[in-house]
């Protein structure tokens, strides 16, 4: 599975949204109605899934799914 697919699966789990409503362009707050705690929970799930550490300062200001996918992909040394 690609990083995007993993992120999407976690967002579905947290927000109970239909798969097609989550795209790379989706904005957490405006499009997905995800608040800051939702985003923290998503990042914790990603840390667990990939056994990585995501420093808090790295994620501040991330507004879209794409930004998270690209950050994680870079951390894993993969293409997004």
């Amino acid at each position: 599975m690609s990083v995007f697919e993993d992120v999407r699966k976690i967002i579905i789990e947290i927000k109970d949204l239909p798969e097609e409503s989550i795209t790379l362009e989706s904005r957490f707050e405006e499009d997905l109605e995800a608040d800051s705690l939702d985003v923290v929970e998503m990042l914790m799930s990603l840390e667990e899934l990939y056994d990585i550490q995501i420093p808090e300062e790295a994620t501040e200001g991330m507004k879209t799914v794409r930004e998270v996918v690209e950050y994680i992909s870079a951390l894993l040394g993969q293409d997004a």
Binding site: L37, V40, E41, M44, E47, Q53
Partner: peptide, 9 residues
């Protein structure tokens, strides 16, 4: 997991 293991909820 240490302090980072605590869920925001």
């Amino acid at each position: 997991k240490g302090a980072a293991g605590i869920n925001p909820f």
